[in-house]
Design a protein around this nucleic acid. Structure first.
Lengths: 210, 210
DNA sequence: ACCTGAACACCGTTCAAGT
DNA sequence: ACCTGAACACCGTTCAAGT
């Protein structure tokens, strides 16, 4: 009789856990339930909670793992395209799309989002591009920050699309309701808004070229 | 000998707690420490944790109290100004300023922000204004959502201003660093970015008038 | 109605004990 | 090095007991 489910103590001959497996499970868990706990994560991995601490530094470490997963999906190669508006549009679309694939993860990443080297390097390339375009340094930073804030905000919008703009029974808002029903679908609203805002930010940038 | 600190059991002759006091303490606590727990909140109020449940529905209820506090500061009267760009700029500046006064509260409010009747009524007025201006209903919703997302994202930026754009030692980002130092101050960066983005969103809106 | 105090389930983190 | 199991402090929530 095989005893494959036998509980063992001590170091296993072959490591059963690694950061990749933890990241997979955490991402799946948040995608499904909107949040995660270390015990639930460990349960899914068939492991004790304390085992996780050999690979990540606690709950914050798992969040960091999630952040890596998401930012890795950003296609920074878009920045090599020309002309510049195609490059920038491509970058920020890809940025938001990375979040859009895992909307329920976004609320976990809202504090301190930009420290990932990947993103900083990409933003450095943007800064270089803007300088090359003749945008003054100070305005470059305003543009970059505005795009970042807008992208994060738009990603958050994806996390709770329906409830975000639901009008309660007791609130009188006929004009807003009319504008809402003018949208063909709820999913489209967030996309339209993002494209609208991104185009606006870029259009204003082009007026500051010299 | 006066025994004013005497512990008592049962209903006190005069209620010691109310939603206003809880809201005050919670706001102060989050402003100082960036988060709150019910035990800590109760300790500050000189009361047992379970007492809070007679006035708010648990932790979520306290968050709702915080949300009310913040949104109540929004000066929706700005919408009565004319011309339209003054009205809209005034509204969204006030919106963001309300968050800016309590930046550390923002991360607690990122999920489901717009259900507050105050804000919905204001947005209804905006929708009416846009219709009056001749903006197509579908584009109105895109504009409104974009402004909302941008404002939330900009408010989040205020919650962690320094660390947000800090470049680690091992990351090479000279162009970004140059753009960063071109800012006169860190506090200014977030303000500049907000003004830049808001102006961009409004400028693009004006091109869609008929 | 409003506050207390005890109780409960649950979570994040640490650490000695095992291989 | 890597996993277990027990332990600890802490949190959110409930509820009977008191006035």
């Amino acid at each position: 009789m095989a005893r494959t489910d036998q509980r063992r103590v001590g170091r296993p001959p072959k490591a059963v856990l690694d950061r990749a497996r933890i990241g997979d499970a955490a991402l799946a868990l948040v995608d499904e339930s909107g949040d995660f706990t270390l015990p639930e994560l460990a349960r899914r991995l068939g492991v004790q909670t304390s085992s996780l601490y050999h690979h990540v530094s606690g709950r914050a470490g798992v969040v960091e793992l999630l952040r890596e997963r998401i930012t890795l999906e950003i296609d920074t190669g878009q920045l090599d395209k020309r002309p510049w508006d195609v490059a920038l549009t491509g970058l920020f679309r890809s940025y938001r799309a990375a979040y859009a694939h895992h909307p329920r993860v976004v609320p976990l990443l809202t504090t301190t989002p930009v420290r990932a080297p990947e993103v900083l390097v990409a933003y450095d390339k943007v800064a270089a591009l803007l300088a090359e375009m003749g945008v003054p340094a100070r305005r470059a930073m305003a543009f970059l920050t505005a795009c970042e804030s807008f992208t994060i905000g738009s990603a958050l919008d994806l996390a709770a699309p329906e409830v975000m703009w639901e009008i309660p029974e007791d609130v009188e808002a006929p004009h807003l309701a009319a504008a809402l029903t003018a949208q063909d679908s709820t999913g489209r609203r967030a996309d339209d808004a993002f494209e609208y805002g991104l185009a606006a930010l870029l259009a204003t940038l082009s007026t500051h070229l010299e």
